[in-house]
Simulated assay, not measured.
Amino acid sequence: MKIYTLHSKQFLPITLDEAWDFFSDPMNLNTITPDDMGFKTLSGADRKMYPGQIIQYIVTPLLNIPMKWVTEITHVDHKKFFVDEQRFGPYALWHHKHFFKEVPGGVEMEDIVDYKLPMGMLGQLVHPILVKPRLHQIFDYRRKKLIELFGEFKPE
């Protein structure tokens, strides 16, 4: 059983309050997801994030095939971190930790995603060809979109 990890850090020139307000609103995921993902929130995003929240989406992660993705917000520590876990969707495992830390000049955001692909060896074979590049593309898009929304971080 192969479990992969994606690790990302980004610094934004905003306050911790602004970062938390933006990222704890599940509807903002639409804003920072590439259009070609066909991302559409179906239900559960009508409130700020809370433990036990179930959010349903339609997403087309690969080959333009729409899939239902259901996540649960399992942990929330106000202005520090939250965790979303896939309950149903394209992955055999999806555990995404989002950390926020105030730093001079802004906020450090850190993402750690642990994930496992379905289909055993076939999943492992397509990982470096399809899945890993697609995940990097999604996080690169997010990085650029956040700079567009909040500006470039300039350390003090």
Rank of each mutant, 00 (worst) to 15 (best):
D21I: 00
D21Y: 01
D21F: 01
F22Y: 06
F22S: 01
F22V: 01
F22Q: 01
F22C: 03
F22M: 01
F23L: 04
F23S: 01
F23Y: 03
F23R: 00
S24L: 01
S24N: 05
S24E: 00
D25V: 01
D25K: 05
D25E: 08
D25I: 02
P26R: 04
P26W: 02
P26E: 02
M27N: 10
N28C: 00
N28L: 00
N28S: 02
L29D: 01
N30Q: 11
T31Y: 01
I32L: 04
I32H: 03
I32D: 00
I32P: 02
T33H: 03
P34D: 04
P34S: 08
P34Y: 05
D35H: 13
D35G: 12
D35C: 08
D35K: 14
D36N: 15
D36C: 09
M37F: 12
M37N: 12
M37V: 03
M37Y: 12
G38W: 06
G38I: 04
G38D: 09
G38L: 05
F39H: 12
F39R: 11
K40A: 11
K40F: 05
K40R: 13
T41Q: 11
L42V: 14
L42N: 15
L42C: 10
S43A: 15
G44W: 05
G44H: 06
G44R: 08
G44D: 06
A45Y: 05
A45G: 12
A45V: 07
A45I: 04
D46S: 14
D46N: 15
D46L: 06
R47D: 12
R47T: 13
R47G: 04
K48I: 13
M49S: 14
M49E: 09
Y50M: 10
Y50S: 12
Y50N: 06
P51W: 07
P51A: 11
G52S: 12
G52T: 12
G52K: 14
Q53M: 14
Q53E: 14
Q53F: 11
I54E: 13
I54A: 13
I54T: 15
I54V: 15
I54C: 13
I54R: 15
I55R: 04
I55G: 03
I55P: 02
Q56S: 15
Y57K: 10
Y57P: 03
Y57E: 11
